[in-house]
Simulated scan of single mutants.
Amino acid sequence: MADKYIIRVTAGSGYDVGEHVVVPVNTAEPVRISSALADVELNVRVQNYRGLPRNSPASSPYFDQEPHEYNGDQYSIAFRFTPKKPAKAVADGDSGEKDDDEEEEAEGISATDLQFGNDFDHPIRDRLPPGFGTAMNIVRWWIDPGLEGDAYADEPYLYGPALSSFNAVHWGAGEVDAAKGGLWFGEGGSESGLAARRDTGAPDDAKARMKWALKPDSKRRWVWRYGDTYALDFFNPYVDFNEFALRLPGFHLPIIRYWDGQSLRSQPKRSHQLRYVLRNRSTGAVYLAVLFTLYLKEDVNEDGSLKPAALQNKGGHEKKEGGVDDDDEEGNGHDEDFDEEKALAEARRKLSGVDLDAGPETNEDDVD
């Protein structure tokens, strides 16, 4: 089924795809995205990329560098992020004076509020693949204990605090190095940025910082300051955009069957989407949205532009005549060949004693 589709990556400062720019995957020059809330410079890298624009590089020198070669990383969403102080009118009768807490908050975005993750604008609860709950426990244990979400909501989401979700957090601009695939930086910061993050108590090591960032006190101490630039990188070896598959310890889920909550075993949809979002938890403001969209190859012109059929169907949840979804007639989209018990046993073996059924071990000092 995967060979029927071609992928395109776009990005913007909001959800409106009409205002997105096409991201040239695996090229070194960052894409610049600006809004009233933030300035962003973005690189997206994907191993074995065969998508749009046409003739895009199949890989990036980024994947030849450590730790990515050792990890076997399959993709990266890396960007510079400079938040801007929002314009806020002083209310009539308000002196404009702020107490100490308001002044501290006005310096930037709290670590509790800045989130990164995935969301959808329509329900997917009836189309979740077999083993989804166990897979989520593995993700929380193995990848990001700070993840929170509701896959069964009308507008499903899975967000984590940016401070604990990103694999690399660099307080500073980092550098652009074509020999290393574009934006390049490690955990830490510039001289002033490193001093600033140490003042918060954040460890210099990435894994230690991710664990430290789960504590409420840590998130209170870290503020993403307006006007400062941060270099952030999200990468892992678990999503294969070549085969459109999710590979976790003990699990191999073919995303193509469930992409955007849809089973594709009957009539293929014209497009399917996976969205990564940097947002504000308190205000709902979006700073960056990166959209991975699959289009039927027949809906893409030779020059890489989209035909009207692709533009008319942007991946929303659709039903066939009579109100029956594409896969309702085939067991709610569940793969009859999927052996959840076998997958769970393999996950337990690889995770060496982790209690997957209990969910992530947290307490009041660990997460919100």
Results as ranks from 00 to 15, higher is better:
residue 231 A to T: 05
residue 185 F to M: 05
residue 250 G to M: 11
residue 178 A to D: 14
residue 239 V to M: 13
residue 194 L to A: 10
residue 227 G to T: 09
residue 248 L to C: 14
residue 217 D to G: 07
residue 242 N to A: 15
residue 201 G to E: 01
residue 194 L to S: 09
residue 235 F to W: 13
residue 262 Q to E: 13
residue 174 G to V: 11
residue 224 W to E: 01
residue 207 K to G: 06
residue 218 S to M: 06
residue 232 L to Q: 00
residue 179 A to D: 13
residue 182 G to H: 02
residue 219 K to E: 11
residue 246 L to A: 12
residue 167 N to R: 09
residue 186 G to N: 08
residue 198 R to I: 00
residue 175 E to A: 14
residue 208 A to Q: 06
residue 188 G to I: 09
residue 196 A to T: 14
residue 237 P to Q: 07
residue 185 F to T: 05
residue 176 V to Y: 06
residue 185 F to E: 06
residue 167 N to E: 11
residue 212 W to P: 00
residue 238 Y to S: 05
residue 254 P to T: 07
residue 188 G to T: 14
residue 165 S to Q: 15
residue 203 P to V: 07
residue 163 L to K: 04
residue 185 F to N: 09
residue 232 L to N: 03
residue 214 L to S: 01
residue 218 S to K: 01
residue 210 M to F: 13
residue 194 L to N: 06
residue 258 Y to P: 00
residue 191 E to H: 10
residue 186 G to C: 04
residue 260 D to W: 05
residue 196 A to W: 12
residue 175 E to L: 13
residue 220 R to M: 12
residue 174 G to K: 01
residue 209 R to P: 06
residue 254 P to G: 05
residue 212 W to F: 04
residue 244 F to L: 15
residue 233 D to V: 00
residue 245 A to T: 07
residue 229 T to F: 02
residue 252 H to T: 10
residue 266 S to A: 12
residue 228 D to Q: 13
residue 211 K to C: 14
residue 175 E to F: 02
residue 182 G to S: 11
residue 175 E to Q: 10
residue 222 W to R: 10
residue 240 D to H: 03
residue 231 A to G: 09
residue 215 K to L: 08
residue 195 A to V: 11
residue 177 D to R: 02
residue 175 E to P: 06
residue 169 V to W: 05
residue 223 V to Q: 13
residue 217 D to F: 01
residue 196 A to Y: 15
residue 214 L to Q: 08
residue 252 H to I: 12
residue 247 R to G: 01
residue 219 K to I: 06
residue 217 D to R: 12
residue 195 A to R: 12
residue 202 A to S: 08
residue 200 T to I: 04
residue 230 Y to W: 10
residue 227 G to I: 14
residue 234 F to P: 00
residue 170 H to M: 06
residue 190 S to L: 11
residue 177 D to S: 03
residue 206 A to M: 04
residue 174 G to L: 01
residue 169 V to D: 00
residue 248 L to E: 15
residue 163 L to H: 05
residue 207 K to N: 02
residue 214 L to K: 01
residue 252 H to Q: 03
residue 265 R to F: 15
residue 258 Y to F: 13
residue 219 K to W: 08
residue 195 A to G: 12
residue 241 F to S: 09
residue 240 D to G: 10
residue 212 W to T: 03
residue 176 V to A: 02
residue 183 L to A: 02
residue 257 R to Q: 10
residue 257 R to P: 00
residue 187 E to L: 01
residue 170 H to R: 03
residue 192 S to F: 14
residue 163 L to V: 08
residue 172 G to P: 10
residue 172 G to L: 11
residue 264 L to T: 12
residue 227 G to N: 13
residue 260 D to L: 04
residue 211 K to P: 03
residue 263 S to K: 08
residue 204 D to P: 04
residue 233 D to E: 06
residue 236 N to W: 04
residue 196 A to Q: 15
residue 243 E to Y: 13
residue 184 W to I: 10
residue 228 D to W: 14
residue 238 Y to Q: 02
residue 184 W to D: 09
residue 191 E to T: 15
residue 171 W to Q: 05
residue 193 G to L: 04
residue 249 P to H: 11
residue 193 G to F: 03
residue 247 R to S: 14
residue 226 Y to M: 02
residue 233 D to C: 08
residue 215 K to H: 09
residue 200 T to H: 02
residue 228 D to M: 12
residue 232 L to V: 07
residue 178 A to N: 02
residue 209 R to W: 03
residue 252 H to G: 07
residue 171 W to F: 10
residue 210 M to N: 06
residue 247 R to N: 14
residue 248 L to F: 14
residue 244 F to G: 10
residue 260 D to Q: 07
residue 236 N to A: 08
residue 184 W to A: 11
residue 198 R to L: 10
residue 255 I to G: 02
